[in-house]
């Protein structure tokens, strides 16, 4: 890492430093916050828990706002984590590339599906 330019520039792998470390923590904190916000609404005394109350929680615009941010945070967090797993255990570059692309496809697909569920509510 002493020389990181020209032909020695690192062009693959993790970003070796603060950015991924920080993004993993910020996205985690956001998901933890979401967990408590959702739990507080579920445990708040009120009507018995059924479809109306459950859907009502996610119908509020501020909750959609937060949930959407959490969906993006989840995909980002999972990408960093799963990419680390491939980088630790899968050494052949070709296999690693295939797995990383498959991971992105998997996460982007799931993200689109979650966003669709959320915003048509």
């Amino acid at each position: 890492m002493s020389v990181n330019y020209g032909s020695k520039r690192v062009v693959v792998g993790a970003h070796y430093g603060l950015r991924d470390w920080l993004s993993q923590r910020v996205t985690a904190a956001l998901m933890a916050l979401f967990t408590f916000v959702l739990l507080a609404q579920l445990l708040w005394p009120g009507r018995p828990l059924g479809y109306e109350r459950w859907a009502g929680i996610f119908s509020a615009q501020w909750m959609k706002f937060l949930t959407f941010a959490v969906i993006i945070a989840l995909a980002w967090h999972a990408w960093v984590g799963v990419r680390d797993i491939w980088m630790d255990y899968v050494k052949p570059v070709g296999a690693r590339l295939v797995l990383q692309v498959a991971t992105i496809v998997w996460l982007v697909g799931c993200t689109g599906w979650m966003v669709q569920v959320l915003w048509r509510l």
Binding site: A55, F58, A78, G81, W106, W113, M114, L121
Partner: peptide, 15 residues
């Protein structure tokens, strides 16, 4: 990560 589609499916049908 592997079970994410199941979680999304639960999110979908429940909402």
């Amino acid at each position: 990560f592997v079970l994410l589609p199941f979680v999304v499916w639960l999110f979908d049908v429940s909402l």
